[in-house]
Amino acid sequence: MANVTLLMTRPRVAAERFIQALPATLKHRVSVCYSPLLEILPVNAEIDLTRVKGVIFTSVNGVSSTLGLTQPCGLVAYCVGKATADAASQAGWSAKMMGETARELIDTMLASRAVGPLLHLSGQHVRGDIAGELTNAGCLVRRLVVYDQKLLELTESAQVLIHEGGRIIAPMFSARTARHFFEQCPQDARLHVIALSPAVAKPLPNMPNLTVTLCNRPDTDNMKREVENVLNLLCRVESAGGAQ
């Protein structure tokens, strides 16, 4: 069996949640190296819900960063992704999953004629302008930053792993993380990257030993399936090589 390492660059809690959700048969076939490239830092935010009819969450981090800062009071929370909707529901919001991407959320909210004013409780760094697009389309939305995403360097163990040239599968969940990751990688790094979406794959460089797999859908279930697919491929390649 191939000696394969899953290199997890998500914030530690999210990375551990992803690994725990993998099938047991898959977890036993890989080792895991945690090297978070983002640290989630709450910011001083005053959340006033007195004049809004609901909120928007685009990540679990948005939900967790508001805990203790406000009371949901039965308000609807429009969410990107099942994990975000589940977290919002557990926090007391009337959660509605509106799609797996910000684009899907916008289109679904407009199609369902969502009514504002709404509050987008977001991170400092976002892709696109949800509040601006919805407001321009007639649904008033204001964005409020409730957490920051501080970039971190690769850990020493991750750097050693990359430089040793072992078999590495690196799931990438955001374009910003992917860009930051490859700024720290040597050009000859041997990597098998799985990008959550075309947007995540866009900043990936052209490197001789880099292979890129794109998820069919930008969700955790598809990422897990692609991890298993890439792992099976690596094992077949190794077995074929050993038989020659």
Rank of each mutant, 00 (worst) to 15 (best):
T58N: 07
P23R: 07
E39Y: 03
L67R: 13
H120R: 13
W93F: 15
A95F: 02
A102K: 08
A87P: 04
D48L: 05
V52Q: 03
G99M: 08
V32C: 09
P36H: 11
D48S: 12
D129W: 02
Q71H: 13
P23H: 09
V80S: 03
V126G: 02
D107S: 12
L75T: 07
L69T: 12
T66R: 01
T50W: 09
A45H: 04
R127M: 07
F57S: 06
A87T: 00
V76E: 12
R29G: 11
I19L: 11
T70D: 00
I19E: 02
L69E: 05
K53M: 09
R127N: 13
S64M: 08
A88I: 00
C33N: 13
L26N: 04
I130Y: 03
E39N: 14
R51C: 09
A111F: 01
Q90C: 03
S94V: 10
P23N: 05
A114F: 03
L26W: 11
T25P: 01
S112Q: 15
P42Y: 04
G99E: 11
Q20E: 15
S64I: 02
C79Y: 07
V55G: 04
A21L: 07
G128A: 08
T84V: 00
S35L: 06
R103N: 12
E104S: 12
W93D: 04
C79M: 05
V60A: 09
H120G: 09
T108M: 02
I40D: 11
Q124N: 14
V126P: 01
M98G: 08
G92D: 00
D107V: 06
V52F: 12
E104I: 00
L121N: 11
I47L: 01
T108D: 12
T25F: 07
A91F: 06
E100K: 06
V55H: 12
W93R: 08
S31Q: 15
R113S: 14
R29E: 13
G116R: 12
I47R: 01
H28C: 08
P23Y: 10
A111P: 01
A85N: 03
P117K: 05
V126R: 15
T66A: 10
S65F: 04
G128L: 08
T84Q: 05
I47K: 00
T58Y: 06
P42S: 07
L37W: 11
K82L: 09
H125E: 10
Y78F: 15
Q20F: 02
F57T: 08
K96G: 00
S31A: 14
A95G: 04
Q90T: 01
T25E: 15
G68C: 04
V60D: 07
P117A: 05
M109K: 02
L49H: 08
L38T: 02
T70I: 15
T58Q: 07
A83S: 13
R127P: 00
A88Q: 01
R113P: 00
A91S: 15
N61A: 10
G81T: 10
G62T: 07
G68E: 01
N44E: 15
A111T: 11
N61G: 13
C73L: 13
H28V: 08
R113T: 03
I40N: 12
I130G: 01
L75W: 11
S31T: 15
Y78C: 03
L118A: 02
V32M: 11
A83G: 01
L37E: 12
V30N: 11
V63N: 01
L110W: 06
L49C: 09
